Simulated assay, not measured.
Amino acid sequence: MLDRSAKGVFVIAPTPFLPDGAIDVASTDRMTDAFIAAGASGMTILGVMGEAPKLTEAESLAFVDRVLKRVAGRIPVVVGASAPGFAQMKAIARGSIDLGAAGIMVSPTPGLKGDEAVISYIAQAMDVVDAPFVLQDYPQLTGITMTAPMIARMAQDQRMVMLKAEDWPGLDKLTAVRRLEAEGKMPRVSILGGVGGQFLPEELARGADGIMTGYAFPEMLVKVCALMAAGSRDAAQDLFDLHLPLIRTEVQPGLGLAIRKYVLVKRGIIAHDTLRAPGPKMSKETAGEVDYLLARLARTERLAAAA
C-alpha cells in the first residue's frame, strides 16, 4: 500500500479508447508496460487526464482491474476517485482497493465555502475511502484554495500519505508545507508535483519527492529526478529545457489531452488518439506544430527519435 515514503515519477495514464469509444484493452496493456519500462515509480489512473467522468462505474473498475493485472505488483497504482457525491466515490475507491490499488486520490469538490468546509469535506472523504489517501491540490480545476496550515491540519490523519501539489504558482506553498514539517507542526508527507511537469526541477529543489503527471516522455522525468537527487542540477535543467516547448504545448487547457494522446500514438504506446465525446479535436495545424517540436527534440534526444 502507498505510504508517506513514496517518491519518484508516478505517471498519470490516459484511458486508451478504440475509434468507436470502447476501452482499448490491448493499448492499455502496452501503455502499462511502456510506463514501467520508462522507470515509473508508480501509475495514477482515472485522474483528470484519464477522462474518468466519461466512464461508467463498471467501465472504471474494469479499467482499474486490467491495469492492476498488467502491473502485477511491480509498481503501486493510485486511482482517482473524486466525484460529486460520496456514494460514487466510495464505489470506485473501495472497488479499486479490493482489486489491489495502492491508494486513492481525491480533490475537494467545487463550491465549498471557507476553510472549515474544505477540511470537513476531506475528513469525510478519508472516512469514505478509508485507505491510503492522496490529497490533490488543484485550485485551477476545483476553484478551492488550500493553504499550508489547512494541509497541515488534514495531514494529522495518518491516512493522508501524499500531497499532489498542483497550485500555480505553488512553489512557495510547497516550501511552506515543508517548513511546517521541519518545525514539527505537521507530520512529513510525500509531496509530488504536477501541472504537466512545468516546474519539475524547481519543485524538486523545494523539497518535492517527485512528480505525478502524464507527460508523453516519462523517461525524461525519471532522468531529471535522478540527476537532481545526485546533485547535478545543471544537467537536470539542461535535459528538462529540451522538453519544455513540448511540455508547454501539452498543458494547453482543453487541448492538452488530445496532444498527449497524439504523441503517445506517434511513440507506438497506444494505438489511437481517440477522446470520448465531448472532447476537442486537433487541427492539422496543431498536429504540424507538434510534429515540428518532436522533430526538433529528436535532434538532441534519442527518446523522441522513434516518434
Rank of each mutant, 00 (worst) to 15 (best):
V189D: 02
V189T: 06
V189A: 00
V189N: 02
S190H: 07
I191M: 10
I191G: 01
L192E: 02
L192F: 05
L192H: 03
L192V: 10
G193T: 07
G193V: 09
G193P: 08
G193I: 09
G194E: 08
G194P: 04
G194H: 11
V195F: 08
G196M: 11
G196C: 07
G196Y: 13
G196I: 08
G197L: 06
G197D: 07
F199H: 14
L200S: 06
L200Y: 01
L200C: 05
P201W: 11
P201R: 09
P201K: 12
E202T: 12
E202Q: 15
E202D: 15
E203T: 04
E203I: 01
E203P: 02
L204F: 00
L204S: 01
L204H: 01
A205K: 14
A205D: 14
R206F: 05
R206A: 15
G207C: 09
G207K: 10
A208T: 10
A208N: 10
A208I: 12
A208H: 07
D209I: 07
D209T: 07
D209N: 15
G210R: 13
G210I: 13
I211V: 15
I211T: 15
I211A: 12
I211Q: 10
I211P: 06
I211W: 04
M212W: 03
T213C: 15
G214I: 09
Y215G: 07
Y215P: 02
A216S: 15
A216T: 15
A216L: 07
F217S: 03
F217L: 13
P218S: 10
P218Y: 01
E219C: 06
E219D: 14
M220V: 06
L221F: 08
V222N: 06
V222L: 09
V222I: 03
K223N: 10
K223T: 04
K223W: 01
V224K: 00
V224H: 00
C225V: 14
L227Q: 08
M228H: 04
M228W: 00
A229L: 01
A230L: 02
G231P: 13
G231F: 08
G231W: 07
G231Q: 12
S232H: 14
S232A: 11
S232T: 00
S232R: 15
S232N: 15
R233L: 02
